[in-house]
Amino acid sequence: MKILFIAGREPAYVRNAMLLKCLEKSGHDIIDCTDSSATYPARFLKVILKFLAQKNFDCVCVGFLGQPLVPIIRKLTSKPVIFDAFLSTYDTMCFDRRRFTPDSLAGKFFFWLDRYSCTQANRILLDTDAHIEYFTKTFGLPGTTFNRVFVGADESLFYPREVKREDTKFRVFYYSSFLPLHGTEYIVQAAGRLREQKEIEFVVVGKGMMHSKVLSLAQSLGVDNIRFIDWIPYEQLPLEISRADVCLGGHFSDIDKAKRVIAGKTFQFIAMKKPVIVGDCPGNREIFIDRQNAVMVRMADAVSLADAILELSDNAALREKIAEEGYKVFIKKCNTAAIGRALAGIFNNSTS
């Protein structure tokens, strides 16, 4: 099958990169109509021009960010359109980042855009069943048009490896773009509660929307056991993960969206056979069982998170167990082969 892949975000964006790799791995021929320009208007224009230059394909896969593209693609082709919605622009802009109120003109536009783009696709992909339930209830869409496809991780980059460290600290690792739904402030608060545990250290990588507020919180709490690193190249991320004793998958906030998804970093951590701590929410429960393949903590609860970190620092057997079982889940459901099989079934059914 020849699949034309087009997206509003760049092909290196993790979700798009995984879809491209998994589609290729499942044996499909891919016509890549993505673009890496720095701005959305430039990308949207260039990908549409690339699309118009193509005539010979069996179906279209619209990757992330595809809501503005789907209505245009639908008018330009009668071929099946599989749309990876991935997230709700309405939910993101109004409830996660809180840029607009739901009743504002912009809020109503994003609501319409999410709903209309979904009605124009033959199939819609989302990352969890909890996210599918949100779309069906919020936008009044039939559940039969949706398929769950986990975010997963690329095992050619994220795989178990042994790295020796010179220090003997118990290292807790987290990285983030510091969006509100991540709940990075609860990690800082948990670190503050563990200040007296001198053997425990935190490494937090990234920058973003809430970064300055998180740093201010750490300063106000007198937290001195977190090493903040603004940025590391993506290809060096596995090395940092490999140095950790425990990884924080999240999400940890009480924002509704945080409860519906499984953080992309979580898949990367279990791909590297690291013990993970995740929020106890419907999204994470789709693959995780508390104390079997992860430790699950109450959302928006620094005490629960601190207790989990302390327990894992004292219990090597539990760390080993959840790391091993988490890795088994990854191999079975979340690596490129597993996701490729899921996508093959969806695309084959959509074009038959």
Rank of each mutant, 00 (worst) to 15 (best):
S156D: 11
Y327N: 03
V261G: 01
K21H: 14
D256P: 00
V47C: 07
R15D: 10
I322Y: 13
K321T: 10
S352V: 11
D230G: 08
T336P: 05
F228A: 13
A130F: 01
Q219M: 09
T144W: 06
H211P: 04
I277L: 10
H251P: 07
C334T: 14
C247Q: 03
F100H: 10
L237P: 02
S212T: 09
G345Q: 12
D301S: 14
D280A: 06
S304C: 03
S313C: 15
F330K: 05
L194A: 13
Y13D: 09
L52K: 12
G140A: 03
L305R: 07
A271G: 00
Y327S: 02
G143D: 12
D314G: 08
N293Q: 12
S26L: 01
E286Y: 10
D58H: 10
A323M: 10
F330V: 06
D230Y: 13
I277S: 02
E240T: 01
F150A: 14
A53C: 07
P160M: 10
S78E: 15
G264L: 11
R115W: 07
R43L: 06
R171E: 05
I241K: 06
F5S: 03
T145V: 13
P41D: 03
E155K: 04
V223M: 04
D114V: 01
K169D: 08
A218T: 03
D256C: 05
Q292V: 14
L45I: 15
E320M: 03
L312K: 04
H182F: 08
V261M: 08
Y90M: 05
G326D: 06
F173E: 05
R148S: 06
F146N: 03
S36W: 07
K207A: 08
I48V: 13
